[in-house]
């Protein structure tokens, strides 16, 4: 056993998962509290400023540029989804002839790059229609889902799958995979719904 595994964290054996869970609870508490309205009101100048940035200017002025970035957003979302479905599908017991560790590690690399492009293109798109999306509830649901997805992916799922999975309950592994698919499906679905609003 190496020194990293023997060193005890003051918040227990799963510090990243504990911190992520705490943040998620705080996020949910915030979402249902009166503070949310105050923060929302305070954020309006920021969204107005976003429209005045170069991204905002390009997004509002050239429909072709906006649509091209949208296409990049969709493609990267597709790749992100593919990586999630492949990796979580393997955790659920599909494609069992493929090596578990290589699938998980390789998919995570793809996931990280795809997420970076999704976020970058997403910021560009928001800048073009910042004040519009500011008033859309579904935009905030998407931001909430995205935050949950990122915290879950890096602070709950990743630490779990980095362990020797033969020592982890199969039920926990399968529940984690299902939760991961559901979270990223919610991110994509709420994003699509912004387009309809």
């Amino acid at each position: 056993m190496n020194s990293a595994t023997t060193r005890q964290s003051p918040i227990g054996p799963y510090p990243r998962a504990a911190i992520a869970t705490g943040l998620l609870v705080l996020l949910l508490a915030f979402s249902f509290s009166g503070m949310r309205a105050e923060v929302w009101t305070a954020l309006l100048p920021f969204f107005e400023w976003m429209e005045t940035t170069w991204f905002g200017y390009v997004g509002k002025t050239w429909g072709g540029a906006f649509a091209t970035i949208q296409a990049g957003h969709l493609v990267s979302l597709g790749v992100l989804g593919g990586a999630v479905l492949f990796s979580d599908g393997r955790l659920l017991g599909l494609y069992s002839s493929l090596p578990l560790r290589d699938v998980i590690d390789g998919s995570h690399q793809v996931f990280k790059w795809a997420l970076a492009v999704v976020v970058f293109t997403g910021v560009f798109m928001v800048c073009g229609v910042a004040v519009k999306v500011y008033y859309l509830p579904v935009f905030w649901y998407k931001m909430l889902a995205l935050t949950v997805g990122i915290l879950f992916a890096f602070y709950v799922r990743k630490p779990l799958v980095d362990r020797d999975l033969s020592g982890v309950s199969p039920l926990v592994i399968k529940l984690t995979a299902i939760a991961s698919i559901m979270v990223w499906f919610t991110v994509a679905a709420t994003g699509r719904w912004i387009g309809f609003s």
Partner: peptide, 14 residues
């Protein structure tokens, strides 16, 4: 149609 991108195109790109 759009969300199925994750299954079809996502896996194809992988």
């Amino acid at each position: 149609h759009v969300l199925t991108l994750m299954l079809s195109l996502g896996i194809l790109f992988l």
